[in-house]
Design a protein around this nucleic acid. Structure first.
Lengths: 193, 193, 193, 193
DNA sequence: CCATAAGCGAGACGGTACGTCCCGTCTTCTG
DNA sequence: CAGAAGACGGGACGTACCGTCTCGCTTATGG
């Protein structure tokens, strides 16, 4: 049956991605090798190359598949509360193992590999950015934000400092930090009386 | 003479770094190899390994040495003008070839290699951050900024969105973009009447 | 109908052998692959493996099937004329393309693959050797050869130098050469007065 | 010292050839792999590829180096005795393990690989053939052979049937067999009264 | 002012992994 | 229901670099 085949193929795909994460956590992305993934999964190398064109593509898939951003963005009616909730969730997700280091490596790889960069954007970055901007726009329409406020930039100000810490200064990503960022953003965000 | 010797050694060091940049621009950092750098420079591999412990360290040196941040931060008395000037300079430097792509690769490498991350911070990121914060502090002391304004976060809000574009969404880095960021930051920055 | 089926099967068998010869002539036996034969014939690999256990067996079949030795050995009554005719025919067959190089490869393969060696003997070598010896025996019985003459060795002296040239020194196989061999053989062959 | 270096290199070369023979005897030439030779010798693959361009070339060297034909051809004054001695020595060498099977494989490889064929001729076949013909010529000059006797063909008649047995019919190579060949050859060789 | 050691180019070396090819087996779907 | 299509685990290919290691050859003082 067709189901069987898909299932079997899917099983292997899953198993390979699982091993990839395992090995990446053990030895780091830099020392990860397709050879080792194949060996540990008990799979021929070709079975991997048939599915992914490069180590980067495999790693991207392995990291993002279990972490596709949820489809909804909380909307309690209170834009500040909603933004706060989201940014803290991001800190929890990216600021610590297991995803943190993997995600850092993924962004690192994206600097060398345009295909990875594009896929990362499409599957992870843009969806979340779009939902954030959409939520902001709703708030603006409801008069919670001044009408000339720059929503795209607001989104970038929420994300940018977080990535700056994560990738550049590599200091620990804390809730306290994003709270401070949020506070500054809010200062310029709320409609002046 | 000792001078000669140092000069000779320095010459080689310079030559190797020059070749490294050349090759990195031709084939990209990922395909750069110490073997190729040695061959093109006309130097034994050992001569490279004697100076740098890894490809990452060599690349970092090659990229940063000609781009150490200047020692001063403009201070015209007008904090807004000064910040604007700096951020536009950063866009000019990082937002286009030749440095742009190299710098992206360098940050990418820093995600896999803690030594590179540390050196990048020490030689490039922190000095500039410190000077920015110092300039902000001066402005605050002069009453141009509200006294409870969060200077570290302000600096991160200037840099973060820039890096977010450069590394994550990989859209072109424009002056118009940083101008918009600056505008939002200023909204929360100036002392409220 | 059963006829159809057999015909269909035979067609495929023929087609596979034809492709095998084609490819062997194009790329040489060493680079011949069952994969390529299957692909070019438009046949599943399994269809080949169902018929032949190995590349060697397939190649043997492909080479020998159109070249099974004829059933008769000329008998004009003149043993010298008959031997001469046969040996020149052998030179024409094996000493030049298309069969020459294929046959050399086949003998080469026989050195690694006992099954091929056995089949080669059974289908090609022994039949011809037997007929040669039989023809010699008839001549001996008719008094054209001295009675204590060693017929098996005579056969080997006719074939051996030919194979020596073909396989070992790899000089061109000429009619002049076998003529000289024949002359020496005849010197020890004819009954001394 | 230069000696050290040469010695070191020669040591490795020797070790690799030794392992090659070992493995060839264990698994056969067909299943011999450069990978396995490298692994068992404790040597990088490149160290083998640096010395030999192919498995065939390596194998040829490994087989022939310890078996270069001696420089002399016995000359007791009795051409028959000398030929007999040589041909029996050949049977002893090629007709049984360890060299027999290896040599068969080598000739097999020569059918696919012109470089191997050429080297085999140059290092093993031609030297012996030349010495045999030279010995025959001496005998002819001394009147032991009829003056119009075909020396090249005589040599081929000594070697050919031996190779015919070894490579084609693959029957055991016995002293009795070559003795019978010799006898027929002698019949046409000696000057007729 | 020469002996000596340090730096150097060259590149061999044991390794690891690459990405590809083909093996022979197995499964699926189609004509 | 035989056969094409091709996925699969496996093994080897030949290549590219890794980082370490001699090896002779400058060359430039320091005894």
């Amino acid at each position: 049956m067709s189901d069987d085949r898909l299932t079997r193929a899917a099983d292997r795909t899953q198993a390979i991605m699982r091993t990839t994460l395992e090995l990446a956590q053990e030895v780091g992305y830099a020392k990860l090798s397709i050879e080792a993934v194949a060996a540990r999964t008990g799979v021929g190398k070709h079975t991997i190359y048939r599915r992914w064109p490069s180590k980067g593509a495999l790693f991207l898939d392995a990291v993002l598949t279990p972490n596709e951003p949820g489809l909804h963005y909380a909307d309690t009616g209170d834009i500040v509360a909603d933004l706060r909730q989201q940014i803290h969730a991001a800190v929890d997700l990216l600021g610590q193992p297991p995803l943190g280091p993997l995600y850092r490596a993924l962004v690192g790889e994206a600097q060398h590999n345009p295909m990875v960069a594009a896929a990362l954007n499409e599957r992870f970055i843009r969806p979340q950015a779009d939902r954030t901007v959409a939520r902001l726009r709703r708030a603006q329409e409801q008069g919670q934000l001044s009408s000339e406020f720059d929503l795209d930039v607001a989104m970038a100000i929420l994300s940018g400092p977080l990535y700056f810490r994560l990738l550049i200064t590599q200091e620990p990503l804390t809730h306290e930090y994003v709270e401070r960022v949020l506070k500054v953003l809010l200062a310029g965000m709320t409609p002046r009386p």
